[in-house]
């Protein structure tokens, strides 16, 4: 039986200032749209596409905060377009939408996030311990809920890369990208380090190749994470502690392990990471020079990191687990 299609009431207008352009440069363009109740920023972008700018580039998939595709900077703050309600933004003011700043522009709101996929390839994968006889009989590993919860927190990550975008180590220093994994991948390492089944030891790798020491615990990453993962407190600080243990006191590190298990050396762990062939094939020309939309006179508000507290080693009383 014919279903009724519901159309929403309209009340007032919203003005969107959206960055349009590509690697060669661009500018903010204003679009005025009728306001609609309950909308998120992505809804308005979609209405701009459907009416005035069919070619306005923007990534999205789920429109429910689950896939991490629609990352951008709204009024200068790294955010998900699909989870930012229009009615949470200052009423009556123009809404500025710009691409993530830390990654090269492809077009409009779409950036080249391949850096993240490259880092992912360099993390040694899970190397699970053998099953005990009891587990073979029971048909699966035994792990306590409390032990899996630590890593489960990090596995909530939707790979929106907003934390990578906001982290000043790469946001302001393109050259650091070759030797810095970034907060998303620090939590990946933390997840594996705390995984009840894992036997790899990634500490040396973290320090020497993934730049863990460059993080100075500003906590900006935690602040923007849409999954509310406590990136700094629960992952980075404990990792820093473990790395310190690795350098100075392997015995202390051993004592901190969740389960008794054999850890390999960093060199062995690194050798297990796939090194051959790209796991992600990039489109030709997909990697382009890093644009600076905020620096070219367009007046985009810049998200400023909280003043960096120069902490290199976490407080010793934090037990890291």
């Amino acid at each position: 039986m014919a279903e009724e299609i519901i159309h929403s009431d309209q009340s007032g207008e919203v003005t969107m200032r959206v960055w349009r352009g590509d690697e060669d440069g661009g500018e903010f363009v204003e679009y005025v749209m009728p306001a609609q109740e309950g909308e998120v920023v992505l809804d308005v972008i979609h209405r701009v596409q459907a009416s005035e700018a069919p070619d306005l580039a923007c990534r999205w998939n789920c429109k429910a905060g689950k896939c991490g595709s629609c990352s951008a900077e709204i009024n200068g703050r790294p955010s998900l377009l699909c989870m930012t309600r229009m009615d949470t933004l200052p009423f009556g003011e123009t809404v500025t939408v710009a691409p993530m700043r830390a990654f090269p522009i492809i077009r409009d709101l779409v950036t080249d996030v391949s850096y993240n996929y490259e880092v992912a390839k360099r993390i040694p994968p899970l190397s699970p311990r053998d099953k005990t006889q009891d587990e073979v009989d029971a048909g699966g590993y035994r792990m306590a809920q409390i032990d899996v919860e630590r890593s489960q927190e990090f596995r909530k990550c939707i790979e929106c890369f907003l934390c990578q975008d906001v982290c000043h180590v790469v946001r302001d220093h393109e050259e650091n990208k070759t030797a810095y994994a970034g907060p998303r991948f620090f939590i990946r390492s933390a997840e594996l380090e705390m995984h009840p089944l894992d036997t790899n030891d990634r500490r040396q790798l973290l320090q020497e190749e993934q730049g863990l020491g460059k993080c100075n615990i500003t906590k900006c990453c935690t602040e923007v994470c849409p999954e509310h993962i406590k990136i700094t407190d629960n992952a980075i600080i404990p990792l820093k502690e473990r790395v310190v243990d690795a350098k100075y006191d392997p015995v202390a590190w051993l004592g901190r392990k969740i389960r008794d298990r054999t850890k390999r050396t960093a060199a062995e762990a690194a050798a297990e990471a796939p090194s051959s062939g790209p796991a992600a094939v990039l489109p030709p020309g997909g990697v382009v020079a890093i644009p600076q939309p905020e620096g070219n006179g367009t007046g985009i508000p810049v998200y400023t990191a909280a003043p960096a507290a120069a902490v290199d080693v976490p407080p010793a009383d934090d037990d890291g687990s």
Partner: peptide, 13 residues
């Protein structure tokens, strides 16, 4: 075995 961490029963399964 590939890393998924499902919620657990009381006896760890």
């Amino acid at each position: 075995a590939w890393g998924a961490l499902f919620d657990r029963t009381e006896d760890g399964l």
